[in-house]
Every structure is written in C-alpha cells, then in structure tokens.
C-alpha cells in the first residue's frame, strides 16, 4: 500500500467513503491550517473497494469529530502519537451540528437575521436526517462552492 509521509503526531481519518475527503477537508477548514495534510483519494480497500484517507499532523483535540461524523459516520479515527497508533475511535452521528451548514429554506429566519448560530439537530438517526433548529426544514446536501 502506498505510504504518504507517515505522521508523527496527529490524526488519520480512515475508511472515508471515496470522494468525501474533500468535503471533510472543506468543513474542517484544513486549508487554514499550517500543518501537513495528506489527502489520499481512491485508495484500494478490501472492505470498501475504494476509500479516501486524510492524514493531518496536528493536535487531535483541535479537530471537530462531530463534523466528520456528520459528513461520514463510518470514518475511523486513528490518533497517532510519537509515530505510534495510540487510539482507534469509532464516531457516531452528532445530535447537533453548529455553524457547519446553513439552512436552504428561503422562508427561514436564518436567511435574513444577522449573527445567528446555524444549528441542525439529528431528527432521524436511521435515515441520517438533520433538520434546521429554527424552521425544521430537512437538510439536503448542496453543491459546495470552493
């Protein structure tokens, strides 16, 4: 398997559904970090066929795991310290996501009120449905403007 610069201290996000690594990159705002970030797309996986992997050389606590779970709850989170794997975490869908996504409902107050927190709550964990805390409109994935 290809080995893109093993990291010393940081976090490796494994088993990302192929194609979703850039989405996670975007929402975690990794472009704003100074550290090493390796994005591996379409790596071969026995279980998944294809998968993405993200390696981030940073303090693991600074990464919002809820955001990752919101985008892809099947991601495995590996915490690396001193070049060794010290912890393997499974994550689950967050009950609430704050200031990650915005409501698309034009009748929603968040479309006009300044300075509101954009909050969504997990309405249906089986079907992975989030609704706006304000107007209860279902969130549907939008095209992201890069």
């Amino acid at each position: 398997m290809l080995n893109v610069g093993k990291i010393e201290n940081g976090i490796v996000l494994d088993h990302i559904q192929a194609g979703k690594s850039m989405l996670i990159y975007h929402y975690l705002e990794l472009n704003k970090l100074d550290c090493t970030v390796a994005i591996i797309k379409n790596a071969r996986s026995n279980a998944m066929g294809k998968k993405d992997i993200l390696k981030i050389e940073t303090d693991a606590h600074s990464i919002d795991l809820d955001v990752i779970a919101f985008i892809d709850p099947d991601v495995t989170v590996n915490i690396i310290k001193g070049g060794e794997l010290v912890e393997k975490k499974r994550i689950s869908l967050p009950k609430e996501v704050k200031n990650v996504i915005k409501c698309a409902n034009p009748r929603c107050i968040t479309s006009i009120e300044q300075g509101v927190q954009h909050m969504f709550y997990l309405a249906d964990s089986r079907r992975n449905i989030y609704r706006c805390r304000y107007c209860d409109e279902k969130y549907t994935e939008q095209e992201i403007e890069w």
């Binding site: 409902n105 009748r107 107050i109 479309s111 706006c132 805390r133 304000y134 107007c135 209860d136 409109e137």
Partner: peptide, 27 residues
C-alpha cells in the same frame, strides 16, 4: 409574530423575558 420561520427561536435566544410565539411564518 413574524413572517419568517424560526423567528421566535431567534427571539428566545436573545431574550431575558418569556417569549410567546404568535406565529412564525408557516411554521
């Protein structure tokens, strides 16, 4: 009362007094 959905929730977040939602859009 407000034409936008969720307006009463915004009011509640900033309020020091009880809020009665008298209608927030079609919500």
């Amino acid at each position: 009362r407000h034409p936008k959905e969720g307006a009463a929730m915004v009011a509640k977040q900033a309020s020091r007094i009880p809020i009665i939602n008298c209608g927030d859009g079609g919500h």
